[in-house]
Structures are given as structure tokens and as C-alpha cells.
Amino acid sequence: KEEVSSHTSPETGIWVTLGSEVFDVTEFVDLHPGGPSKLMLAAGGPLEPFWALYAVHNQSHVRELLAQYKIGEL
């Protein structure tokens, strides 16, 4: 988790977690339908608090999209 928390910018890579999985979403930030700034709120940390607020994320196609960016496990 400490390593994930240091990845919060395009220069270091933008990493997020979901459960025990780690994702590098650097290439996706500008494609995020809610805008880059919304995704950047989660940079370096867990997606769960944000996904709890926005139910649109609880769809299979969203998880499939995220899976493409998986880089490891906590």
C-alpha cells in the first residue's frame, strides 16, 4: 500500500486499488467519463469510497475495463 500511495501523478504513474488488486490507470485518466479530476481523487489509494458514491461503477463492463490495467496484488 505504501508503494501504491507514491503513484499519484503522470510522472510516477497513477495507481489505484480495488480490493487486493492494484491497477495502473495512467493511460485511462484522460478517458474517464467523469473527467480526469474525478479519477485523480482516488490516485494512490482505494477506489471503493468513490465507487460507493457512484453506483454506475458497479457494472461488469466497468470491471472488465479496469482489469486491463491490473499490474499486481497488495
Rank of each mutant, 00 (worst) to 15 (best):
K1R: 06
K1N: 03
E2T: 14
E2G: 11
E3I: 15
V4M: 11
S6V: 15
S6Y: 15
S6A: 15
H7I: 06
H7E: 15
H7N: 06
T8M: 15
T8Q: 13
T8I: 15
T8A: 13
P10C: 10
E11I: 10
E11D: 13
T12Q: 12
T12D: 13
T12W: 03
I14V: 10
I14P: 00
W15Y: 14
W15I: 13
W15K: 03
W15C: 04
W15E: 02
W15L: 10
W15F: 11
W15A: 02
V16S: 03
V16Q: 01
V16K: 00
T17Y: 05
L18H: 15
L18V: 07
G19H: 07
G19C: 06
G19W: 03
S20V: 11
S20Y: 10
S20T: 14
S20L: 13
S20G: 13
S20P: 10
E21N: 12
V22Y: 07
F23Y: 13
F23W: 00
F23G: 00
F23M: 05
D24Q: 00
D24H: 08
D24F: 01
D24C: 06
V25L: 07
V25P: 05
T26A: 08
E27F: 01
F28D: 00
F28C: 05
F28A: 00
V29N: 04
V29Q: 12
V29P: 02
V29S: 05
V29C: 08
V29G: 01
V29F: 02
D30W: 12
D30H: 10
D30T: 09
L31E: 07
L31D: 06
H32V: 00
H32N: 00
P33D: 00
P33E: 02
G34M: 00
G34W: 04
G35N: 01
P36T: 09
P36M: 07
S37F: 05
S37R: 12
S37K: 14
K38M: 07
M40W: 06
M40G: 00
L41E: 12
L41V: 04
A42T: 04
A42C: 08
A43Q: 00
A43F: 13
A43R: 03
A43D: 09
G44L: 07
G44I: 10
G44Y: 03
G45N: 08
G45M: 13
G45K: 14
G45C: 11
G45H: 10
G45V: 01
L47H: 01
L47Y: 08
L47R: 02
E48T: 04
E48L: 08
E48K: 11
E48D: 03
E48M: 00
E48C: 05
E48W: 12
F50S: 04
F50E: 07
W51P: 06
W51L: 03
W51D: 09
A52P: 07
L53K: 15
L53N: 14
L53S: 14
Y54W: 03
Y54L: 06
Y54V: 02
Y54P: 09
A55G: 14
A55W: 04
A55C: 10
A55I: 01
V56Q: 07
H57E: 08
H57M: 02
S60G: 12
V62H: 00
V62K: 01
V62R: 05
V62D: 05
R63Q: 12
E64N: 06
E64G: 10
L65C: 12
L65V: 15
L65S: 08
L65G: 02
Q68M: 12
Y69H: 05
K70R: 12
K70W: 07
I71N: 07
I71A: 09
G72D: 07
E73Q: 14
E73M: 10
E73N: 11
E73Y: 10
L74V: 12
